[in-house]
Design a protein around this nucleic acid. Structure first.
Lengths: 335, 335
DNA sequence: TTGTAGGCGTTATCAC
DNA sequence: GTGATAACGCCTACAA
């Protein structure tokens, strides 16, 4: 049968409440008592029942990740980062990898909150900016942390990278290489990150860059295709760009594929730049210069903020990005 | 405040127990009573508390996915498939994306089982074949379903594809193209799927194929590198293979990269084949011929088996694979 | 510093 | 068919 607090209390020769105190690291427990209890816990291999704890207490020791991002890498890294932090507190993560086009998103979140009474939620783009969700959670008084919010900061804590600065860094890099006509493949309008990156590009380019804008479907496969289509369109321009900067790595990969199809050589004929969530791009797409996104770190920080406690102040936690230049990215022919 | 069964029972003018009966689809409830209750539930927007249900009842309405697979695509597809099935029953999924080198795996699973008393677990490779885990779960009397088990079938239900047949199909295809020397990049020994695929290759090749075996680290990045290294070694052989078949898509990508580095043209100088978890390979690595793995479907079927109920018979559910040939893969030069 | 009583929201058991 | 009542395992409040 199940080992309960009662068993532990009997084993340790104390009351149930005292065991509970030890389990929850409360004060006012004698050192010797604490040790006896801990010994009993270890001996009986006791694990408190989550169900009972969340029913009786305020906490449920569960948090949920609301993730509607179609990039498996992003999801994986995010989950891993969150989990890294959660294990420290013995908290479980409920993953909600919502599917594209989830019409029931709001209802799903609401039922999640009602049914599991999670201790908090972590929102990622694009859900991190959905007003209906933000309102719902605020109304219910549910704690939540946003990853890469586009606006409405101040509502809650969040973790993010400076996408404007990142895109600007990349742009400066490209300009430093001699590029004067830089194309940009814009992402889906729901993703504020994409807009931020576009903004960074503009700042770096100082208005002098050639800029092509393209809306992208959030579905991953389509993003590849959208990247390719955007590149094709740019190649056909009277003065095609010598560098193309995509606001996500899969769109950048689509650009690469389109360039190959045209017989363009990378980076001699064209420099391609993007963002990536892992070190993977270095192996899969070696000629791709990227901003390395610390997705895992953002997840960790988000969980850290969420687990900080009810009374913790709202905090915006920025995580550093990194420009990763690969292979020979020397001056471009004909630039 | 929270809406409870009590509120619903008052609203519907019935007892608490009757509401409970309706919620759990039990028999012996009058049709009109049922309707009144359902109306009250909808009106009050009532959602039963998971915590209370799992504390009082036998079920917890939660299942867990034990996933130690380093491929984000695999994890994502698996989670999505499982979730597709879970939502139908109002069951939650706890994702446990265990990290590489998790020394505490067994302990983690044990504490998960003890603390959350999940209704069941889904195991994926390589955990699906870890005897320590299987023993633990059997001892605890916990329901679980295995995805792609290597052996010990008959223990529990499982979902899988026929990896032997898949590899054989691919081999037949390659032989049909004129290949006589086929290299094989083997995966990590913990993955039974890899061994199955090797077996399928041997059957297809009839012992006449040239076979290079390579152990691969399960970490994704390394798998790319291992694929590349294996390819390099094969290229240096006196009679290098004209086709290389890798037991995973990332190793196949590594082979592709190595081939490019050597100046080999695909598929004129070399055919490269692998497996993939999504339709992604068609876009990212166009020259790659693959076996499309229905990862999502395997997840769905695994969840379906798990949710079938305690008394459901043990069942082995096979999911069909698909050979995806891309681009021109005509006869190979010098074959 | 420690113990006791009561309740969290649901299901299980047993009457009606 | 339906309803009272006792668990389930733990935490909160209050007392000692």
């Amino acid at each position: 049968m199940r080992v309960t607090i009662k068993d532990v209390s009997r084993e340790a020769g104390v009351s149930i409440k005292t065991v509970s105190r030890v389990l929850n690291n409360e004060r006012y427990v004698g050192d010797d008592t604490r040790e006896r209890v801990q010994a009993a816990v270890a001996l009986l291999n006791f694990r408190p029942s989550m169900a009972a704890r969340s029913l009786a207490g305020k906490r449920s020791f569960q948090i949920a990740l609301i993730c509607d991002n179609p990039s498996p890498y992003y999801v994986y890294e995010m989950q891993s980062g969150i989990r890294d932090r959660c294990v420290q507190d013995g908290v479980r993560m409920i993953a909600q990898p919502y599917d594209r086009d989830s019409a029931t998103l709001i209802d799903d979140v609401e039922s999640l909150v009602d049914a599991t009474s999670v201790d908090g939620l972590i929102l990622t783009p694009p859900v991190t900016d959905y007003p209906a969700i933000l309102d719902l959670l605020a109304r219910r008084g549910v704690r939540f942390v946003r990853v890469s919010p586009g606006g409405d900061t101040g509502l809650t804590s969040c973790s993010f990278i400076d996408n404007v600065a990142a895109a600007r860094t990349m742009t400066d890099h490209l300009i430093g290489l001699g590029h004067r006509r830089i194309g940009f493949v814009k992402g889906h309008p729901d993703y504020a990150t994409s807009a931020h990156r576009f903004c960074g590009l503009c700042r770096g380019a100082g208005g002098g860059g050639h800029i092509a804008r393209t809306g992208a479907d959030p579905r991953r496969l389509l993003r590849f295709r959208v990247g390719g289509a955007a590149a094709e369109a740019m190649f056909d321009l009277p003065n095609p760009p010598t560098a193309i900067f995509a606001s996500s790595d899969d769109m950048a990969a689509g650009v690469l594929a389109a360039a190959h199809k045209r017989g363009l050589r990378i980076p001699d004929d064209l420099s391609v730049a993007g963002f990536d969530d892992t070190a993977l791009a270095s192996v899969v797409w070696p000629p791709l210069t990227t901003i390395r996104q610390p997705t895992r770190a953002m997840g960790y920080q988000a969980a850290d903020l969420l687990l900080a406690g009810d009374d913790a102040p709202i905090e915006r936690r920025e995580v550093p990005f990194e420009l990763v230049v690969r292979g020979s990215t020397g001056p471009v022919r004909g630039a």
